[in-house]
């Protein structure tokens, strides 16, 4: 099962001839992702790693059934490319670009809502259902198939935790990065809900950071809607107030943005708190998984 993607998902890669797009498309295909087509304006008719390329998404969808798109289109052109995907009726779009202007993101997300489509990102590594499908840039050797669902604001932190789990023989159902930017599409709560409903996921690892109130919202959601156990790791204990720690939102501005207040919130609703990535395997084993 996994969530959002599985071994049957047919994928189109947008921006497939660029450095990153071409490199990552090959890795995804080698992993087993069913990549049916690629799109780059002006490059139609050629092939990359044996994958047929089209100038336009509308041409690709005439020839292929497409369930999901991963876009490697650079930030400046990302809005146009995203609207192109959504207009063609494709219902799931992964936006990897970092640095898309907020106004462009707003329009893409609003248009996706109008079209009934889901956007993951922007500024996301994408997602991976180990052993089934990789729609993203994850270093896949760090992941293995299993029953732990991971949702993370940070891409790199989800790799780190995946690596620690895999080393300890604990596999994952799906690993989702919601995106490091100030605004993003698919919400953390929506991912938690999917894990709650997914029969293959038994426990969820929530990876958060300082700044904003995302983990407070997660706590409220866990209290209302979740029965499966949740383990949470919040990084940035040592971050000073007022400094931006990489991500747009990772700035401690009020008390609610501190790691301590987020931990209190999550503990109150019964989430298990990990002090470091290294503690997570033990905490999962304690739950008998």
């Amino acid at each position: 099962m996994a969530i959002l993607i599985d071994e049957n998902t047919r994928v189109l890669v947008q921006g497939i001839t660029g450095n990153v797009g071409s490199f990552q498309a090959q890795i995804m295909r080698d992993y087993g992702t069913k990549i049916v087509a690629g799109v780059t304006p002006g490059k139609g008719g050629r092939k990359v790693h044996g994958i047929p390329i089209y100038d336009l998404v509308e041409e690709a969808v005439q020839e292929h059934q497409v369930d999901a798109v991963i876009s490697f289109v650079p930030a400046r052109f990302a809005k146009d490319a995203a609207i192109e995907v959504l207009s063609s009726g494709i219902r799931f779009l992964v936006l990897t670009a970092e640095g898309i202007p907020d106004h462009d993101v707003l329009i893409v997300l609003r248009y996706a809502a109008i079209k009934g489509a889901t956007v993951l990102g922007p500024d996301t590594p994408g997602l991976i259902s180990p052993g089934k499908c990789k729609l993203g840039v994850h270093p896949h050797t760090m992941f293995m198939e299993g029953r732990v669902g991971i949702v993370s604001k940070s891409g790199s932190l989800s790799y780190e935790v995946g690596r620690v789990l895999t080393k300890n023989g604990i596999g994952q159902s799906t690993v989702v990065g919601i995106g490091g930017g100030p605004i993003w599409g698919l919400s953390q709560e929506a991912v938690l809900q999917m894990f709650e409903e997914d029969p293959e996921t038994e426990i969820i690892v929530l990876l958060g950071e300082v700044g904003g109130k995302l983990e407070h919202d997660a706590a409220a959601f866990i209290e209302e809607h979740m029965n499966k156990p949740v383990i949470a790791l919040i990084v940035g204990h040592t971050a000073p107030k007022g400094a931006q720690m990489g991500h747009a939102g990772a700035i401690i501005e009020g008390e609610e943005g501190t790691a301590a207040s987020k931990i209190t919130s999550l503990e109150r609703v019964g989430a298990i708190i990990a002090k470091s990535s290294l503690d997570i395997p033990e905490l999962i084993k304690k739950k008998g998984i």
């Binding site: 500024d123 990084v235 940035g236």
Partner: peptide
Amino acid sequence: ADGAGTGMLTLDMIHDAGGKPANFCEMGG
């Protein structure tokens, strides 16, 4: 660090091991 999340985790771990970080610095994807 090459990621914000692992960058913050590294700082936390330095601190827990009794070290003192001079800075946070993330290069981006």
